[in-house]
Design a protein around this nucleic acid. Structure first.
Ligand SMILES: Nc1ncnc2c1ncn2[C@@H]1O[C@H](COP(=O)(O)OP(=O)(O)OP(=O)(O)O)[C@@H](O)[C@H]1O
Ligand SMILES: [Mg+2]
Ligand SMILES: [Mg+2]
Length: 560
DNA sequence: CCAGCGCGC
DNA sequence: TAGTGCGCGCTGG
């Protein structure tokens, strides 16, 4: 028997690819508006250009970079095309599109490799970072292709650094070939270009990805990575954030040390002396583990694994940071906009992932209170069940109303935001989290899709209730900076205290919201397990829902 | 479990 | 710096 099985494989190097989409928001926006292809374009959130396309970035005179204030950008480049990007939906969807394509390609490639060697298809973990970056651990796939033979002995793309480790060089050669072919596939499939960095750790792959941009790739051979790292700003290391930087700076000043921390070498000079340095930095940061991680990064040591992040997010939120929000009418109006967007996304999420949130979080920030903000978490109003589980569009207005009431009472109870008080809010946000186990929904016996069962039940209940109406608008911005005038019917409607019934067993629900949620979860679970027993065990049947989401309730933004 | 913080894009 | 609009993981209570 060969010792070279997956588990027993001795500690060899890994091959990790970091993908980063080019000027992501701008590329997505321009893909939907081909006539803008050769114009300088920026994506605007409030008064900030969060990104720009490469036409804007590479202008000889008046170049506009990422994260530029709108006023500054328009000064430099008056003919700039501004596209509003405060709704991230198109970018989130494009992100899922890309990751899905990546997974599909890798699975295909893994099956091919497996067929040749008559083994199990090697699995490649994919981890998203933000919307436009993906780490992939292609070690197993690359090893498999090396064993199968036939892979050329060459790198694709740029090569930075060197290595004496022949096995690693071979591994990264094949990884660079995988990366190149996968990128070509993605560009053809999505019309979005991207860069790649290929190395033996997440850290170095991430550093490599930025070396040749756009639409290019770089292999980082790591033998002298430590020397290279010393010249960088420590902020270039992922994990070494502003807080860490700031704490170290204040410490050096307070302790009469020399001037600022400019490079990684500076950090190592202060804390690079083994165990005691780790302890000293740990004290400064208030966390020794973090200190150890930071110092490892400074030396180019990074063993963090690529954790597959799956497709379903763990939380969904919508926020509005405002200059100054001082009246209840304004609070109410802004809240409804964000809640509407949240509920819309929860409906899509429910359809995609067969789940519903159990917690609602309300976050806010007052002007002046220097710190980040405050958040309170309460049970999600049960009205959301009809939206997520039953996909009832006409239940959406009630869910919005209910969440609005809850959010307003949270603001009143915990922040004193109410009529007659003075306040000045600079942030309002709502979020959904603590999603129900998808087990409750996954059931799907051999006979009928279990979700139809839920829909049937819920429909009966809902038809017994009285209908409500409401008109909702998405801010629509054809082209150019909008000073976002969002409309909403601000009429307060006192919803009658309708009795709450379980959408599954139809029994009346008593107790507080938490108890109601618990009941519904139990019901979902028991009805599901019952089905499973009668139908025999089914592993993971439901995967793709096939149909594209058709959102009849909200105006889909289809700008020209 | 929640709130707060720090990190990332 | 944060500005904006997200989303993640860890820590202490
Ligand atoms: N601090 C931020 N706040 C809001 N959005 C951000 C922030 N940083 C990045 N983004 C958005 O996430 C996307 C990806 O970020 P990234 O840093 O990769 O820049 P990019 O626009 O993709 O440009 P590049 O071609 O340099 O990668 C961007 O399009 C950007 O608008
Ligand atoms: Mg990018
Ligand atoms: Mg990026």
């Amino acid at each position: 028997m060969s010792i070279r099985r997956k588990r027993q494989r001795p500690v060899t190097s890994r091959a990790i690819i970091a993908f980063d989409l080019d000027c992501f928001y701008a590329s997505v926006a321009i893909r939907a508006r081909p006539h803008l292809k050769d114009k300088p374009v920026v994506i605007v959130q409030k008064h900030l250009c969060v990104t720009s396309n490469y036409v804007a970035r590479s202008r000889a005179k008046g170049a506009v970079q990422k994260m530029t204030p709108v006023s500054h950008a328009l000064q430099k480049c008056p003919e700039l095309v501004c596209i509003d990007g405060s709704d991230l939906t198109p970018f989130r969807e494009a992100s899922l599109e890309v990751v899905t394509a990546i997974r599909a390609w890798l699975a295909d490639r893994a099956r091919e490799a497996a067929a040749m060697s008559n083994t199990k298809p090697p699995f490649c973990a994919c981890q998203r970072l933000g919307f436009d970056e993906v780490f992939i651990d292609v070690t197993e796939l690359a090893l498999s292709e090396i064993e199968n033979g036939g892979a050329p002995f060459l790198f694709r793309g740029h090569v930075f650094g060197r290595t004496d480790d022949d096995e690693l060089r071979r591994l990264l050669m094949v990884a660079s070939q995988l990366s190149h072919q996968l990128r070509e596939y993605l560009i053809a499939k999505t019309q979005l270009t991207l860069c790649a960095g290929i190395s033996h750790s997440k850290q170095l792959a991430k550093l490599a990805v930025n070396m040749n941009k756009p639409n290019d790739q770089t292999v980082f051979l790591p033998d002298q990575s430590a020397e290279y790292l010393k010249t960088l700003s420590p902020r270039a290391l992922q994990g070494f954030g502003h807080g860490t930087h700031d704490k170290i700076i204040t410490w050096t000043k307070h302790n009469g040390k020399h001037e600022g921390i400019e490079t990684v070498a500076d950090v190592l000079q202060l804390f690079g002396d083994g165990q005691d340095g780790i302890r000293r930095l740990g004290t400064i940061l208030g966390n020794e583990q973090h200190a150890l991680h930071i110092l490892n990064l400074c030396r180019g040591v990074d063993h963090t694994e690529v954790l597959d992040s799956g497709d379903a997010p763990k939380s969904i939120s919508a926020e509005d940071s405002c200059r100054s929000c001082t009246t209840m009418e304004d609070v109410s109006r802004r809240l409804v906009v964000q809640i509407t967007r949240l509920v819309s996304r929860l409906r899509s999420d429910g359809q995609l992932f067969s789940r519903r949130p159990r917690a609602l979080s309300v976050s806010y920030r007052f002007r002046g209170d220097g710190f980040v903000g405050t958040s309170r978490s309460v049970p999600m109003p049960t009205e959301i069940v009809s939206v997520c589980c039953s996909q009832q569009n006409k239940a959406i207005p009630k869910a919005i109303e209910s969440i609005k009431k809850t959010a307003l009472s949270v603001l009143k109870e915990h922040a004193g935001v109410q009529e007659g008080r003075t306040f000045d809010l600079t942030l309002l946000a709502v979020g959904a989290s603590n999603f129900s186990d998808s087990d409750s929904f996954k059931g799907n016996g051999l006979t009928t899709d279990i979700s139809e069962f839920f829909i049937g039940k819920a429909k009966r209940i809902d038809s017994g209730k009285k209908k409500s109406s409401g008109t909702l608008h998405h801010s629509q911005t054809p082209t150019g900076v909008s000073n976002h005038v969002q409309r909403t019917d601000s009429k307060e409607r006192s919803t009658p205290e309708a009795e709450v019934r379980c959408p599954i067993c139809n029994s009346k629900l008593s107790g507080d919201n938490l108890m109601q949620n618990n009941h519904i979860d139990k019901c979902l679970k028991s009805s599901c397990t019952k089905r499973d027993k009668s139908a025999g065990s089914v592993k993971r049947a439901r995967k793709s829902l096939g149909t594209r989401t058709l959102d009849s309730y909200f105006s889909k933004r289809l700008q020209r």
